[in-house]
């Protein structure tokens, strides 16, 4: 089935999920454009897995809704959608070959040639029972099943967890390859470097709420680090914290880093007046952005940026 151009592949509208008194996800709204790679970042317990579960009907949202290509999720959509959960959910008593057969019988899009190529790529033994696989191999098996059906939408929760660096790279290549073929990929990972390498857009969740969302390049250009080195211990920069563009200030001996929104020129000039040995303006990488976003002092700034760069 072809999608309408411009219709988001996935739309999450004010999604809230409560487990008893615990608020796992609060009023989350996100939009994932078709054919993009979307990274969902967050600390443990941020609500990423709950969000995935609500998206896929594995958990009922307390409030809000999720739609795929403008329509609610129905079982036939799973013909074109693959999900790899954080924790391996496959049957440990089945062999690799039996799991492939299970997939073949469940999905008309199943591609046996592709599945076998992936089994070889991850060096998985078809005759071995899943219970005898290592954790990383179990994750790889789940990935083989997911990619073997040529999904149009891929939802991957920590897809590289437990994999060695070589296979992590394979996963990244597969994600990028699927996206290049037109698939929409949503994935979460604690490996921020991988997300930065693959994702075109990211969302950062913290304590169940969305803190930041937008295109990776845009976020990186909107947020800078002004780094200064002094001959002696760095002076107090309390005066700068009142600046609206300043998020977090880190001091470590003679080094000081100020995380700022915007180009950072004004802040660099003010620090320059304090006669540092050097001062320079650096781009923030995704890890910097993530850490500033989930850090309490950076939240306000991140929220501002989310307002500017988000959906």
């Amino acid at each position: 089935m072809m999608m309408n151009e411009g219709t988001p592949a996935i739309s999450i509208d004010r999604l809230t999920k409560r487990y008893g008194q615990t608020l796992a996800v609060e009023s989350l709204s996100l939009s994932v454009p078709q054919g993009t790679i979307f990274g969902l970042l967050g600390t443990n317990g941020a609500g990423k897995t709950t969000t995935f579960k609500c998206m896929l009907g594995l958990a009922r949202p307390s409030e809000g809704s999720v739609s795929f290509e403008g329509r609610p999720l129905t079982p036939p959509l799973f013909e074109r959608l693959a999900y790899v959960p954080e924790k391996c959910a496959l049957y440990e008593w089945m062999t690799g070959a039996q799991l492939l057969e299970m997939q073949r019988r469940s999905f008309s899009r199943y591609d046996d040639k592709r599945a076998n190529e992936l089994m070889d790529l991850f060096a998985l033994d078809r005759k071995k029972k899943l219970g005898k696989f290592s954790k990383g191999q179990q994750t790889a098996m789940a990935l083989v099943l997911a990619f073997s059906i040529h999904p149009e939408i891929l939802v991957l929760d920590e897809p590289a967890a437990g994999l060695d660096p070589v296979h992590q790279r394979h996963v990244l290549d597969l994600i990028i390859g699927e996206s290049a073929g037109g698939a929409t990929v949503v994935f979460s990972s604690h490996q921020i470097g991988q997300v930065e390498r693959a994702a075109e857009r990211v969302a950062i969740m913290h304590q169940g709420t969305l803190r930041l969302a937008g295109e990776v390049e845009q976020l990186k250009s909107d947020l800078k680090v002004v780094e200064a080195t002094f001959d002696t211990d760095a002076p107090s920069l309390n005066g700068l914290s009142a600046e609206p563009s300043v998020g977090q200030i880190q001091r470590a001996g003679r080094l000081v880093r100020v995380y700022v929104k915007g180009n950072g020129d004004e802040i660099a000039r003010k620090i320059g007046d304090m006669h540092p040995r050097s001062v320079r303006i650096l781009d923030q990488n995704l890890e910097d952005i993530f850490l500033t976003t989930v850090g309490s002092s950076g939240s306000a700034m991140a929220a501002d940026v989310a307002g500017a760069s988000g959906r």
């Binding site: 896929l56 009907g57 594995l58 079982p75 959509l77 999900y83 924790k87 391996c88």
Partner: peptide, 16 residues
């Protein structure tokens, strides 16, 4: 016992 993400993400309803 942890298999629902597999069972419920097939193109079949829970009734089926």
């Amino acid at each position: 016992e942890d298999h629902l993400p597999v069972v419920w993400t097939r193109p079949k309803s829970r009734l089926q």
